[in-house]
């Protein structure tokens, strides 16, 4: 359910970027979603499409790349991609640890309509 909150934050940043470039329509938004984030891409897309209605980002495409989780073992400090909800170090079998990747949602880039190339050709 908190996808709507996430979309609100995403759009605040997206419109900031658009404003800095003269407010052209937004055509694409790229996200990097960590595997440890409990986000359902379809729900995020649904919330995004609903939120951009009537704005300069209406019709923009939401792209996301999943970033795999990376855990650092608390005992031997090896890093590994967990195979299960319970993290077990494949090197020394210690449990738990710290996520060093895959625990963030990052706005990677915003694509804006290019005024020059979009006009007058052909």
């Amino acid at each position: 359910m908190h996808e709507f909150s996430l979309v609100e934050s995403i759009l605040t940043s997206v419109f900031d970027v658009a404003r800095q470039h003269g407010n052209p329509p937004v055509t694409r938004v790229k996200l990097e979603v960590g595997a440890l984030q409990q986000v359902v891409p379809e729900a995020l897309e649904f919330a995004f499409n609903a939120a951009v209605k009537g704005t300069s980002a209406e019709g923009a495409v939401l792209d996301w790349t999943e970033i795999p989780a990376r855990i650092q073992c608390p005992a031997c400090h090896a890093t590994y991609e967990p195979a299960d909800v319970f993290w077990v170090c494949p090197n020394c079998e210690a449990q738990g640890g710290k996520a060093i990747a895959g625990d963030d949602i990052v706005l990677a880039s915003v694509e804006l309509e290019d005024g020059e190339s979009g006009q007058g050709v052909q």
């Binding site: 940043s13 970027v17 880039s109 915003v110 290019d114």
Partner: peptide, 14 residues
């Protein structure tokens, strides 16, 4: 035109 941002979405809340 693609503008690179690289910003955590939770930044404002954080």
């Amino acid at each position: 035109m693609e503008i690179n941002v690289v910003e955590k979405v939770m930044k404002v809340n954080d």
